[in-house]
Design a protein around this nucleic acid. Structure first.
Length: 749
RNA sequence: GGACGAUUAGCUCAGUUGGUUAGAGCGUCUCGUUUACACCGAGAAGGCCGUAGGUUCGAGUCCUACAUCGUCCACCA
């Protein structure tokens, strides 16, 4: 058999993937034997953009674990899927529309939905092709999409159950409103940026107070001071009069309220006497902290008075400023204050953190918009809240697993172990500060919220099948459908059980709880936390035994990859140039769990060289064994080099296996690399050249060469599946089909 | 404001319960083209493992403090 001198991934990869797929062994139902289940649910990539190297890293890690366990005889399932990624996808698509000079605000909802559906289907298809090229051995027959009716049904069931249990409620609270995207965002979907803004000191009745947002003064419903502030004690409980510029004389139309506004002075601990003058205007409709203050003083001051609208414009309650954008209104108001001698001073050096939309970077406008919330800290009948259950699970996961390993049955709650361990503290700290989670979004792309509102009595009617036409309370037929959709994470947060249930009750019985959730640390809160909470709530079990977090792939200068910087590595381009195996090995090699990974092209090239080295090792062996059969058992070593390589191979099998069991994939990769190149090739093969010339040693040497190579191929297969499968094809004996389902090497005694 | 991580060869990084001469990739230098591979081989240079203390028979590995860089969380008008 003649092999080409250099390994050419292009010539083999496609054909090999097709063979794997055709074999049916990606589907655990077709695997020989009857092992314990081993399950990974693939984190579904967003169907709005091509795959990036971050995906490639995750899928490589998952594929290594999957292939390793398949070879170990587990009933191994890797279930793939795609996420519609509501907000993210809508933003991407709206940008696309913008480039075409269009806008969703000028489109019908159905038309918009149809177009974005097509866009997503195309991306979904491209992603799946990319995942295949990487060599991922996932079971495509179980592939699911978050907008699959089977998934939506499960999501609705959970929603209904939560409403019935009082864990989901509709609340009028202040929320993070993005004036560009016209939706509420959760706290996680906002970011903070330090800015220097003028701090205005203005006359305010008898006081002077400091504010960066004078334009919100029209929404003030009270004035607050610290209860222990001697300067203002005499005012507490009193009413003061404040000039508001909203009197008729400022109106072109002559409309407006008469005279200055009366506001009551209240005392609240939240007021810092050291800041500004120690006096705060309370604007419950436009400031979260002020909203909180109001909730503590509902009997003393009026509630929210909205003066800014959803587009960031001042409304009709602001008199002459109505219709102005915030920035414009602020300038005008400051000028007017100044003209009337009400502006005391401006502090230009004031620095503070401004909350921004994480997507567009526009300033978040706190607004009161009714939303559906998950009550994450409210106790269930069993006494535990969603948060409590998740915290408990993570604590169990780190302390009990070793003891329980001996004594597992299906109902044992093993909790959730987080790797690397340092993320456990981060997780618990975040959980500790957890607030209620807004799950409704004012966007069109997503799973509709299955609720109708009675126009007559205001009843909220949960209607998961869209069948109810009359209000069950007052029989009115004037029902309005909720126009909102769910936060994507509310559906993907149910992914581990929803995907399995969607594939049938038997799958759920067999494969749940899953073994490992492998994902990036950047979505620990967004996703992992929600999956744990929702799984304990709906199923009463952990969704997965282990969370394995990988780092972010950065460029060679440790910069975050981004389109604007132009440093994005396209995984498919890399595969074209160096092959999937080289990319996979480069991503894994010398990278500890949870650490970010700088990826330089030289590293990938180096791993391509390793693939080529392995290829030529095989070439040499095939050319020198003269058709000898691959030994089933380890041959007995005779010479010193034989003994040495036999021992080293044994050690390598032991170490690689241990490292894989401990999820130290990078260590395992280095072990194999080191053994293959520097022990087997550099030393043993050189010695073998002499031994092969010696008639008494020749046959034995051939056996050791072949056997060692076969063990290397097995050890390396999870990491570099293509080249190992290609070589296996050339050395396998009779009765073997695919390396993919060969059994994992055992150590020899 | 709170917490976490990193600091090891020129560059990028491994180093799992503390234990013999601290490793890899890339890069550099010298030599080599003998039928596996120049996507190669042989050899070499290069590290008081951030700083200062401490625990120990023994510390890159544990403890304390500090410095620099980075990250996350919270957020006051």
């Amino acid at each position: 058999m003649e092999l080409p001198k250099n390994y050419d991934p292009q010539a083999t990869e496609k054909e090999i993937y097709a063979r794997w797929e055709a074999s049916g062994f990606f589907n655990p139902d077709n695997l020989p034997g009857n092992g314990e289940p081993y399950t990974i649910i693939m984190p579904p990539p967003n169907a709005n953009a091509p795959l990036h190297v971050g995906h490639a890293l995750g899928f490589t890690i998952e594929d290594i674990l999957i292939r390793y366990h398949r070879m170990r005889g587990f009933k191994t399932l890797w279930l793939p899927g795609t996420d519609h990624a509501g907000f993210e996808t809508q933003v991407v698509f709206e940008k696309k529309l913008e480039k075409e000079g269009r806008s969703r605000f000028k489109m019908q909802r159905e038309e918009f939905y149809k177009e974005i559906w097509g866009f997503v289907q195309e991306n979904k298809h491209n992603s799946e092709e990319g995942i295949k090229r990487l060599g991922a051995s996932c079971d495509w027959s179980r592939n699911v999409f978050t907008l699959d009716p089977r998934i939506i049904k499960i999501v609705y069931e959970t929603f209904k159950k939560m409403v019935d249990d009082g864990l989901v409620y509709r609340g009028e609270r202040i929320s993070n409103w993005c004036t560009k995207h016209q939706t509420t965002l959760s706290d996680l979907e906002t970011k903070y940026e330090e800015r220097q803004d003028p701090l205005y000191y203005m006359k305010y009745g008898p006081f002077t107070l400091a504010t960066v947002r004078p334009e919100t003064k029209f929404g003030d419903t009270g004035v607050a001071v610290n209860p222990n502030d001697e300067r203002y004690k005499q005012y507490i409980g009193q009413e003061i009069e404040v000039e508001m510029f909203t009197q008729p004389q400022f109106h072109e139309t002559g409309a407006g309220q008469a005279g200055p506004v009366k506001l009551r002075v209240i005392a609240d601990e939240a007021v810092d006497p050291e800041f500004g003058t120690g006096v705060v205007k309370v604007t419950p409709a436009h400031d979260p902290a002020d909203f909180e203050i109001w909730t503590r003083h509902k009997d003393e001051i009026p509630g929210p008075k909205q003066v800014i609208d959803k587009f960031g414009r001042l409304n009709e309650l602001t008199g002459p400023y109505a219709g102005m954008k915030i920035k414009e209104a602020r300038e005008k108001i400051v000028a007017d204050l100044k003209a009337r001698g009400l502006l005391v001073k401006i502090d230009d050096a004031y620095k503070h953190n401004v909350q921004l939309c994480y997507k567009c970077g526009n300033v978040i406008e706190p607004l009161i918009v009714p939303q559906w919330y998950v009550a994450t800290t409210k106790p269930l009948p069993n006494g535990s809240s969603l948060r409590d259950m998740a915290v408990r699970a993570v604590n169990i996961g780190t302390t009990l697993d070793e003891k329980l390993k001996k004594n597992i049955n299906k109902d044992t709650d093993l909790g959730v172990k987080i790797i690397p361990d340092r993320f456990r503290a981060i997780f618990l700290h975040w959980m500790n500060n957890l607030r209620d989670w807004p799950i409704s979004r004012q966007i069109w792309w997503g799973i509709p919220i299955p609720v109708k509102y009675c126009a007559d009595c205001g009843e909220n009617i949960i209607d998961t099948e869209d069948k109810i036409t009359a209000c069950p309370k007052c029989a009115s037929q004037k029902l309005n459908k909720d126009p909102d959709t769910f936060d994507t994470w509310f559906s993907s947060g149910q992914w581990p059980y929803a995907t399995l249930m969607a594939n049938g009750e038997k799958d759920f019985e067999t494969y749940f709880p899953t073994s490992v959730m492998e994902t990036g640390w950047d979505i620990l809160f967004f996703w992992v936390a929600r999956m744990i909470m929702l799984s304990y709530y709906r199923i009463g079990k952990e969704p997965f035994r282990t969370v394995f977090l990988h780092g972010l792939v950065r460029d060679k200068d440790r910069q975050k990859m981004s389109k604007s910087k132009g440093n994005v590595v396209d995984p498919l381009g890399v595969i074209d140039t160096y092959g999937a195996d080289a990319l996979r090995f480069a991503l894994i090699f010398s990278t500890a769990a949870g650490n970010d990974i700088p990826l330089a092209e030289e590293k990938i090239r180096g791993m391509k060289h390793f693939a080529n080295k392995l290829w030529n090792i095989s070439r040499f062996i095939i050319m020198n064994v003269e058709g000898a059969k691959l030994p089933k058992e380890a041959p007995r070593p005779l010479t010193e080099p034989d003994k040495k390589i036999t021992k080293e191979l044994n050690d390598t099998i032991k170490t690689v296996t241990k490292n894989l069991d401990n999820l130290a994939l990078h260590e395992a990769a280095q072990n194999i690399y080191q053994f293959t190149w520097h022990e087997f090739a550099d030393i043993y093969i050189e010695a073998a050249k002499t031994q092969l010339k010696n008639a008494s040693e020749k046959a034995d040497t051939q056996k050791i060469l072949l056997y060692s190579l076969s063990q290397i191929l097995k050890l390396l297969h999870p990491f570099m599946p293509y080249i190992t499968e290609a070589i296996w094809d050339n050395i396998k004996g009779d009765g073997s089909s695919l390396l993919m389902i060969e059994s994992w090497p055992k150590t020899q005694k």
